[in-house]
Structures are given as structure tokens and as C-alpha cells.
Design a protein around this nucleic acid. Structure first.
Lengths: 361, 361
DNA sequence: CTGTTAGCGCATTCAA
DNA sequence: TTGAATGCGCTAACAG
């Protein structure tokens, strides 16, 4: 395993000092034509690429950004990550990843390795921004942070954080609650009156909670009773959702899931109960993952530009960091638009259930 | 933005030298009880976590590993990545990601930022290991590499690579060709005689090629003609596959796709043609992505333990790197087992087509 | 046991 | 225009 070529090797080969090599490599400072030639040649011949670790140490800031998502196996976060990585790469930054597995208690340990790498900034999707230990740690470490998909929340933490986060509060997200309202309204418009809401655990996702709140808003506005949400341990793989009780108790004609992966799981569960979607029960979700378009019936959902959100988060973070730590110019909070995507899983309610049915006590 | 606390801050607070701090932090060398106490206290109070960049520079090896996948939005790679990241984290390593977008020409530039970070090692899924420029660069840089999902191929490159890769050839994969054979056999067993193979571009995936070769093996062994594979520009999002020509020309009763994402896309395309799966045409894929189980009909596929492969790749790489760069103990090539997963998309061939039909010239 | 020091790869003063 | 020297945070000899 040959040691990586260093700036010294290049300097020796070009018969000059490392300072000059640094100058041409970074295009900083003046270098005469001939010398520049020799150095360029040496760089090419030795296939020299400067060590980011050396550079980071000298500059006291790295070209790496860290990303924490609940899980990379949820397509919506994979999309974010793809966009984010792409934007970061174009800006010459590397991307470190971490996963919390939707557990608030694991967020802190998950980002510890990221913080240890002294990244230029962090993009976080946490369970609950208001109480996130990870967010607090990042702030304490003085690392600029952008929240992704989370609801904006006041900066957390101790005295030191206040200063650290002075320019903080950056967030790229969507209108989760508004989307919940609109989706519920779309379901109601189809004549459904008994709606169930299936979600991941609220303690694991402020998005799920906000979406439910919007759902509740719409039902309440329509003068309908709101059944308590069904919270499910959600780990992307949760392919065995148990709807027995809800179906028996509420007899819903439509089920709204807090995300598309769950919605697809709900469809499978309904099928196991011998119920047809959408003939017996309609289903809708949030996120607009690509697969939802391809399955049959296609998934009715709220679509937001996940990939673009990743791109935007990277852009905002890099702007926040600034080439010189100068004044950031980007908006502090960016809410990207969403769209109700009609799908075959959402149909008119069966005629027999257009009127609210009292649940027997 | 307060500067991160350094080992000096801790030393000052504990009234000792930085060497002693280093000793307790890394548990290297002896430190008296009392001093250890003071240092531990200082570390806790200052929330000190040693800079990996400083450490990497001093040690000349980092605790970071880089990963190149075609795309993180393909669930099979997301699964790999999840497993890999998890294993790396447990071993105290951070994970850097890069994507090639299934383009061989982009692999080199994609991993450039990774190499610049001087990672302990690299896990690569490339288009074609035999000609991969990225692989060559990694070898030239002397970075231990594990191929993931690729077919094993001799070490590439120049003189220097030979030495660099002397211990190389590490790969975690599956029996792509064997799986292709078995899946085709399973389809043939259902009475199908006109089979089409839809794949991503072979130049983008040695896996797709190997799977097709297995497919061809089985058809040939059964004395059937083998239609040329349909290669498709595949970018995970390719939700508009055009099957018009294949359907007209071959009139297949079964279509095998080189991966599950494609298979799902194929199902959607068939639907657009008014064909029912599996009544009119059966479909099968490779990878065993989780969603395949949940959709209806469920996707017949070849399942391999993607997440475990990521875990295994991390383990092999870390072993390869070694705590001391010592002799690695793990196998050089690891082939994980696969399983034909039956699914509703694969059914008996329509009776009218049990016998081979001559295609008109 | 503890402290001092050299040096990892690089950018950056400061002199020449 | 160029080079020598300093220091970034840390580990690892080496001295005491």
C-alpha cells in the first residue's frame, strides 16, 4: 500500500517549495509561468490530489457536510439524500451519513461520529426538533445546522447554544399540517365519513403529528368526530400492520397513512382482511414516493419535491457556512410546495356509508 | 460560532499536559487515578470529543470509509447502505457516500471527493469492475477496496496497482448468473416458452449481464431460442418503459427484469397495454426489495440479503484495513446465498402458449 | 507515571 | 515572484 502522494512529493518533483505548489493547486497567490508549468506537470504525473484532512486542519474548516436521516431505506429520505449528495458534490463537498432509526434516543450517538469529523455543517431530520439532543449537541459544537422536513422550532439548549445558534433556525420543509388538511379534504370530498389515521409513533416524527393535526382540522371543520390516530412502530420494514381492531371498531371507508410506505403497508393489511382497495376501503398517504405511481391501483398521496428539498438543504447550508463565513443570504425557512396527487387508491365512498354511522358503545 | 474545544482546552482545565489527556481519551498508556479523574471531569464538563481530522493526520489513517453506489434511491442499494452504515458506526467509523448514476464515466469523478478524504477504505459498486477507472484510482491511491454486488474481476491497472492491490480482490456479492438460471428455470417450470428479458444497460451493470447470462443458460438448456435482451436506460425513476415492440415481436408470456425496480416498471407498462399480470403475462425480478412483498400481486423475485451484504462489506473492509494493518483474516470473496421468492406475478403460462410458437421471419 | 517534542499534510503569514 | 517558517489538533516516541 503506497503512501498517498503529498504536496512535498510534488514540490520535490517540480523543484520548488510546497508553498508554490499550494498556490497553483488552490490558485491562490502569484506563480510565474514556467514554475506553474512544472508544478502542473508534476501534479499530473503524480496524480496528486491534496489531502482534505490536511487542508481541513490548516483551514479549520472542512468541505464535508453531515446528514442525519431516520433511515436511508425510506424512499423519501433516499430521495433527499440523493439530491443533497448531488448538490454537495457539485459544490466540492463530501457527505457523511447517519441514521437514527426513528429513535430520538439514538440521534445523539448517531451524529457523534459526524461531529467528530468537524463538518462544515449538518443537515438533520430529527424526531422532535424542540427536544432533540442531537440538535443541541450540534449547536454546542458550533456547527451550522439545517433542519430538513422537520417543523421549525425555536433553537434549543443552554446559554452557549443561543450564541452558537444566533444565525440559526434554518429549515427546509413543507407545510405538513396544511397538506394533512388538504388530503383529508380530498378524501371527504369523495363522500367518506369514517376516516382512520394510521401513523408512525408521534414521538418519532413531528411530521406525522403535524399531518394528523391537519387531518383533524379538516374533519373537525366538517363537523365530523375524529378517532384517535393509530400509532404504529414503524421501521420501514413494518410489513405486518395489524388493522383488526380499527376495522372492527371504526369500520372506516378510508384510511390515511402518515407516509407512503405505511400506506402501502396498510393496503397489504387490508388485503389480508379480504378488503379491496379502493372498492371497500380507500387509502392515501404522504410523500409521493416514485413507486406509488407504478403500483396498481396507484397511490393517492401528497407529493413534495423530496429530491429538490435535499438539494435546497445543501444549498442553504453551504450558503449558511459561506465561503468566508460571511453573511448568509438565503431565507431562514424554506417551505416547498406540495401537490395532492390523485390515485386509484382513493375512490368514492360506498353508498351505504355516506352518512355517519354511530359506533355502538 | 464558538471554536470547538481541543485537547489543549482539556489539558488546561485538568492542569496537565495534552499527552495525558490523549492517554485517557484513547486509553493508551498509564495515568494515575487522580489525574485520570481530573481529566475525565474536564472532558465531561467541556463536552470534549477529539477531532478526527487531527487524529487522522497524526495517525495517517482515518476512521472513515467511502461508499460508491449507482444510486441511493434504488432500495437494494439503500438497504446495502443502511447495513453498511450501521456496521461502520458500531465499529466507530463514519461513512462517506457517492453516486455514479449508473454511468461508468462518472464513477471516477464521483469518488474523487472520497479519495481526497483519505478514507481507511472504499466499498464500490461499479458498472464494470474490469474496466472501472474508479477502481483503478482507488488502487493507485493505495486505498483498500471491497467490491459490492459486482462480479469478481482481476485487479485492474498499472504496475503500481499490482502492488497496491496485492492483497486485493476483496468482494462481497451473490451468484448473479446462478440466480438468473434458477429464476428462468422457475419461470419455465410454469410452462412459459416465450420469455423476454428486460435489463438496464449492460454497460452500466455487470450484474444485469450476469443475470441475463444465467437466464440464457436456462433457456438454452431447455432447447429454447433466446431473444436478445431489451436494454433500457435505467435511472430508478424510469417510470415509462416502452414494451410495444417486444410485445408485438415476441408476444412473451413472461418477462424477467434484471431488477425489481425494473420489474415493477414493467408491470406498469403491461398495464398500460391492457395486459393483466399474471393472467396475460408473468413478471419476475431480482433483488427482493421489501416493497415487492407488499404490492398486489406480490413480486416474484430472487431475494438476497442486501442489508447483510452491506454489513458484510463493512466487516470485510475493516478486517482488510485491520486495526494494525496486520494480516486480514476474512475470505477474499464472499458470495451470499439467494432464494427464489415465489410471488403472485408469476403464474402458469396461458394454455394456448405451452408450445413454442415460431416467430415469423 | 507525566511532560516535552516532533511531525502528520496543508495554507498562510512573513521575508527575501 | 518565491521560499522558509509557523501552526492547525492530535498521537507517539522519548525523557524525566
Amino acid at each position: 500500500m503506497p503512501a498517498a502522494t503529498t504536496i512535498k512529493d510534488v514540490a520535490r518533483r517540480a523543484r520548488c517549495s510546497i508553498a508554490s505548489v499550494s498556490r497553483v493547486v488552490n490558485d491562490s497567490g502569484p506563480v510565474s509561468g514556467p514554475l506553474r508549468q512544472r508544478i502542473a506537470a508534476a501534479v499530473a504525473e503524480l496524480d496528486f490530489s491534496p489531502s482534505e484532512v490536511g487542508r481541513s486542519l490548516a483551514l479549520k474548516r472542512s468541505r464535508t457536510i453531515g446528514v442525519l436521516v431516520p433511515s436511508v431505506t425510506n424512499p423519501v429520505f433516499a430521495d433527499c439524500l440523493a439530491g443533497l449528495q448531488d448538490a454537495a458534490r457539485r459544490a466540492g463537498h463530501a457527505v457523511l451519513i447517519a441514521q437514527s432509526n426513528y429513535e430520538a434516543g439514538r440521534e445523539a450517538e448517531a451524529i457523534a461520529p459526524l461531529i467528530a469529523e468537524r463538518p462544515a455543517g449538518l443537515v438533520l431530520t430529527v424526531c422532535d426538533p424542540a427536544s432533540s439532543e442531537a440538535r443541541r449537541r450540534a449547536a454546542a459544537a458550533g456547527i451550522p445546522t439545517v433542519l430538513l422536513f422537520n417543523e421549525p422550532a425555536p433553537a434549543v439548549g443552554t446559554e452557549i447554544d443561543v450564541e452558537a445558534n444566533a444565525g440559526g433556525g434554518a429549515v427546509v420543509t413543507v407545510d405538513n399540517r396544511g397538506a394533512g388538511r388538504e388530503l383529508a379534504a380530498a378524501v371527504l370530498a369523495r363522500g367518506h365519513r369514517r376516516l382512520a389515521f394510521v401513523a408512525g409513533r408521534f414521538e418519532s416524527s413531528d411530521r406525522a403529528r403535524a399531518r394528523f393535526e391537519g387531518f383533524r382540522d379538516a374533519l373537525t371543520a366538517a363537523g365530523l368526530p375524529v378517532a384517535p390516530p393509530i400509532e404504529i412502530d414503524f421501521l420501514d420494514g413494518a410489513d405486518h400492520i395489524d388493522l383488526t381492531e380499527v376495522l372492527a371498531r371504526l369500520q372506516p371507508t378510508a384510511i390515511v397513512a402518515s407516509n407512503d410506505l405505511l400506506a402501502i403497508g396498510v393496503m397489504a393489511a387490508l388485503r389480508r382482511h379480504g378488503l379491496a382497495v379502493p372498492q371497500d376501503v380507500s387509502v392515501a398517504g404522504f410523500d409521493g414516493i416514485a413507486i406509488g405511481r407504478l403500483i396498481a391501483p396507484s397511490l393517492a398521496t401528497v407529493e413534495w419535491p423530496a429530491r429538490a428539498m435535499g438539494t435546497a438543504a445543501a444549498a442553504m447550508l453551504l450558503d449558511l457556512v459561506g465561503p468566508r463565513g460571511g453573511k448568509p443570504t438565503a431565507a431562514r425557512t424554506l417551505r416547498l410546495p406540495h401537490l395532492i396527487r390523485p390515485g386509484g387508491t382513493l375512490a368514492d365512498a360506498p353508498v351505504t356509508s355516506c352518512l355517519p354511522l354511530e359506533t355502538s358503545p
